[in-house]
């Protein structure tokens, strides 16, 4: 699929059959890293496990943050039941925490995750693409 369709007879552009986005780069040499990954070689496995490890660490971090904030609440109220008598602006603290504040906190965690996960993928794409084959 070349960028400029060649002119056919009578000045009309030749028909190009479009079946889908190009799965592979049209020309040029593919970078080493993606060839290694495609070949499922040991080097390719290193690239892949670095991406997987990075994403898994990020996910685990977010889940630990969730567990240490929202997840410990039942335990805290089990150990200190009188916390539930506390009021803030007339609203009992458990209601404020579980009925309202937990939702913005979940969105903040999700927003942080999306930003970092996309950054990880950009880094991976740069790593794999920016290694011209010069051997």
């Amino acid at each position: 699929m070349s960028a400029e369709p060649t002119s056919g007879t009578g000045g009309r552009p030749a028909r190009v059959r479009v079946t889908g986005p190009p799965r592979r780069r049209a020309s040029g040499v593919r970078p080493t890293a993606s060839r290694e990954i495609d070949a499922d070689s040991e080097l390719g496995a290193v690239y892949m496990s670095s991406l997987l490890g990075e994403q898994l660490r990020l996910a685990a971090g977010v889940l630990v943050a969730l567990g240490l904030t929202v997840g410990v609440l039942p335990l805290v109220f089990h150990v200190f039941p009188h916390l539930s008598d506390l009021r803030l602006l007339g609203v009992p603290v458990p209601w404020l925490l579980l009925g309202v504040l937990v939702y913005p906190w979940l969105i903040v965690l999700g927003w942080f995750y999306v930003r970092r996960a996309e950054a990880n993928e950009r880094d991976f794409a740069d790593l794999v693409a920016d290694q011209p084959d010069e051997r």
Binding site: R30, S34, D38, M48, L51, E121, A125, A129
Partner: peptide, 9 residues
Amino acid sequence: HTPEAVDLA
């Protein structure tokens, strides 16, 4: 796990 933009099999 790889982003769609990266050209891989």
